[in-house]
Design a protein around this nucleic acid. Structure first.
Length: 225
DNA sequence: AAGAGAATCAACCGCAGACGA
DNA sequence: GTCGTCTGCGGTTGATTCTCT
């Protein structure tokens, strides 16, 4: 098919952005909005590809970005969301106002991953390391894999919010009640059926995020229906 | 003080999905 | 329905900074 390159490689800069390039990009976006990234570099007088401009703006120049260390609350929230969503960094970032997917991804890889391993947890599955089952998973059998593949057990797990009301962002353990918080996709319209609500309490504190507490244990399984 | 290794983070790359013609 | 373009995402890389010896 011959995908065209995202930019004319010959005429674009690469590598670290200069102060001047940043200023040009900021000035252009403040004047014209984010608009079409492909045409932006030319319009802004930048020798960069649109992709690079977008990345620079999203990850570094946006005025609403929060700089500095992650708080303990953010840390816990990332772990919780990762347990539910996996490496959906953009979705996780949407729950953390002022943080970018790149930030979170980097923070995950440099801090949290190590922290979980230190606690004896598999950072991918959030389950204890080196059980027989996990041994299988490490060889390519993930517990979240689509139903498929071998073995006597159907290992697929259905995750859903325990109650429709939980879609409301107020029920999520966000660090602030920012209106920018993006709710997770709503559950199907059908009433909550026999699907297991697998509430794996990682990082959530009491009365937050989920109310179907059928067990006092820290790793409880609730049931919708 | 200097070098080595580890940690951090900005940026790039390739792919997939959305969308319009 | 097909094709081409654009955007956004996740994985990865590489430069810089920090820490330890």
């Amino acid at each position: 098919m011959g995908r065209s390159p995202c930019c004319e490689q010959v005429h674009t800069n690469k590598g670290a952005w200069t102060r001047e390039e940043d200023d040009r990009l900021i000035a252009h976006i403040q004047a014209h909005g984010e608009g079409c990234w492909r045409s932006l570099p030319k319009a802004a007088g930048l020798l960069r590809c649109g992709k690079s401009c977008r990345l620079r703006w999203m990850n570094y120049l946006r005025p609403d970005l929060k700089r500095g260390n992650f708080t303990e609350e953010e840390d816990e929230l990332i772990v919780s969301l990762h347990a539910l969503l996996g490496n959906k960094w953009s979705v996780i970032a949407a729950r953390l106002p002022g943080r970018t997917d790149n930030d979170i991804k980097n923070y995950w890889n440099s801090h949290i991953k190590r922290k979980l391993v230190g606690k004896g947890l598999d950072p991918r599955t959030h389950l204890p390391l080196k059980t027989g089952r996990l041994q299988l998973e490490e060889e390519g059998q993930s517990s979240t894999d689509e139903g498929g593949g071998g073995g006597d057990l159907d290992l697929s797990i259905s995750l859903r919010l325990p109650r429709a009301a939980s879609v409301n962002s107020a029920n999520w353990p966000t660090t602030s009640a920012s209106p920018e918080v993006v709710p997770l996709p709503p559950p199907p319209a059908a009433p909550c059926g026999p699907t297991i609500c697998f509430c794996y309490h990682l990082g959530f504190r009491s009365d937050e995020a989920c109310s179907c507490r059928t067990s006092q244990s820290s790793h409880s399984h609730g049931y919708c229906g």
